[in-house]
């Protein structure tokens, strides 16, 4: 176990030294805060544009506080997801390509520790960034539109956070399977998009799909409860474990690429 913490500490140190621990939370906070602020200012922005014909009446739907929070989540679902894929895409493949994985894995290091330490570091930075970003969104929504119950916000953040963690795990899996970091990010985002679309198109058949997590998070926000939650959560957790196991298995077969 102490060896696992040594590995985790190294990942953590790398997050700090590379500056990721600064810029990723900052971007998430900007994403989270900008959505309620922009929604609030939108009528004025349009009025200030000044090129409207005289007498134009613009009717904007009245936004509820929870509606704004759902929009904020959608921001995290696109740009946030992209950032998580970008910071995780090289986590294993870069080490295999540069040869550092060969340096480490000739030591008595468990392959599973090597992968899970990276995975835990990814979860940590995701949790911190998303927590701060969502918190910022919640704060500005409360200030500008009216409060959203903390319980609904917290529940939806757990569900949505699980989705982010799932996509991060898939990125790490592809980072282990593929040589190219860019291909890993592309595959992971592609898989996430496919899963989301398929779940929307076939809601009945894919009622258990992890792609449903975003929908559940929104439902949790709007109505305070999400039905059909547990199958999705369990399947997601099982998929995460399976992805990690596959990554470990593949790494054990091919600890370094330059060796071949």
């Amino acid at each position: 176990m102490s060896q696992w913490f040594v590995l985790y500490r190294k990942e953590w140190l790398e997050l700090i030294r590379s500056g990721k621990l600064i810029w990723v939370p900052v971007v998430f906070i900007l994403l989270g805060a900008s959505q309620p602020i922009v929604s609030y200012m939108l009528p004025e922005i349009i009025a200030g544009a000044g090129n409207m014909p005289e007498g134009t009446v613009i009717e904007l739907p009245t936004l509820t506080a929870s509606g704004v929070m759902v929009q904020t989540l959608q921001q995290f679902g696109t740009l946030g997801l992209l950032i998580i894929a970008l910071i995780s895409m090289g986590t294993v493949s870069n080490e295999r390509l540069s040869g550092t994985s060969a340096m480490i894995l000739v030591k008595p290091v468990a392959y599973s520790s090597f992968v899970t330490a990276k995975w835990a570091a990814m979860l940590t930075i995701t949790a911190i960034s998303f927590g701060l970003g969502y918190g910022a969104g919640w704060y500005y929504t409360a200030a500008l539109f009216g409060s959203v119950s903390l319980l609904a916000a917290a529940g939806s953040s757990l569900l949505f956070g699980l989705w982010l963690g799932f996509v991060g795990t898939v990125t790490i899996l592809f980072s282990t399977l593929l040589r190219s970091a860019a291909a890993a990010a592309f595959s992971a985002l592609g898989a996430a998009a496919l899963l989301s679309i398929a779940t929307t198109l076939l809601p009945k058949a894919l009622a258990w799909s992890p792609g449903k997590l975003t929908e559940l998070a929104a439902a949790q926000l709007m109505s305070g409860h999400a039905s059909g939650l547990w199958p999705v959560v369990s399947i997601t957790i099982i998929s995460i474990i399976a992805a990690l196991a596959l990554a470990v298995w593949h790494l054990r077969q091919h600890p370094s690429i330059e060796a071949v």
Partner: peptide, 13 residues
């Protein structure tokens, strides 16, 4: 692996 110390041809750090 605990008995072996290894220096590859091009060590990477």
């Amino acid at each position: 692996r605990s008995l072996i110390g290894f220096l590859p041809q091009v060590p990477a750090f």
